[in-house]
Amino acid sequence: MYTLGIDIGSTSSKAVIMRDGKTIVRKVLVTVGTGTSGPAQLIEKLFEDQEIQLSDIQKTIVTGYGRTSFKEADKQISELSCHARGVHFLFPSARTVIDIGGQDAKALKLNSRGMLLNFSMNDKCAAGTGRFLDVMARVLETNIEDMGSLSEQAQAAATISSVCTVFAESEVISHLSKGTGTANIIAGIHRSVAQRVSMLAVKLGIENDVVMTGGVAQNSGVVKAMEEAIKTRIKVSDYPQYTGAIGAAIYAFDEAEKEMTKRCSL
């Protein structure tokens, strides 16, 4: 049985098709999110080679910031529950999740079955999110993808004290004008993100294993800074951006199974 999980975020759209809620058979990412052509592109790309047809999909669940605007799905579930489920699939031993997406950051606490026990989210503020790193990469004339490797060359992380994206940008510019090396500034930016977001996890209480998800988890510099901030090793999957979509596809499988059981008992 094939089920589809779609995660429409603020800056990207992700989709995962799973077989029997156990195997990922297809995953697609489009770098535009809610309110754009992203969701439509996602569907087009998912089925372009026609190996699996839309009609093969038993159930679709949508999650993410744009979940309420995607009407084709059978159901929508919050990204917090989907991330919890997706992480449990990838790392069954995970109990704490730190997710940094395009415009929000959150910490989740899971039970041994991957169900959400508690959560904590950032305020309505870009600090500590993917958007914050986007702004900083632009100021530093760097590709966001290179920030992780560049930060490894840092000798001493620069201090970025401000919690506000706008003021932090000014601080970065002043570091640049003082001649501080880019690598040191990037390491400082990563530390600033880690310090802010780690507080969400600390508030909940950190329990091992800790997993990082979301696009920012691809940045090894942020992961390292986060490990230092919470003094705990962090696990990252090979595709951290797809965690929400994986969780949605598993929820979709549960729903489809429930329906089948109901139909059989009739």
């Binding site: 579930i77 917090l80 169900m115 026990l117 989210m121 309505k124």
Partner: peptide, 29 residues
Amino acid sequence: PHVFIETDLETETDEQARTRIQAFTEMAA
């Protein structure tokens, strides 16, 4: 179980509050 929602000046949409409330209703507890 408890959930924290912050309200500011009135807005027509509040997607963060929507996510928090929905996740709260989905929580295992």
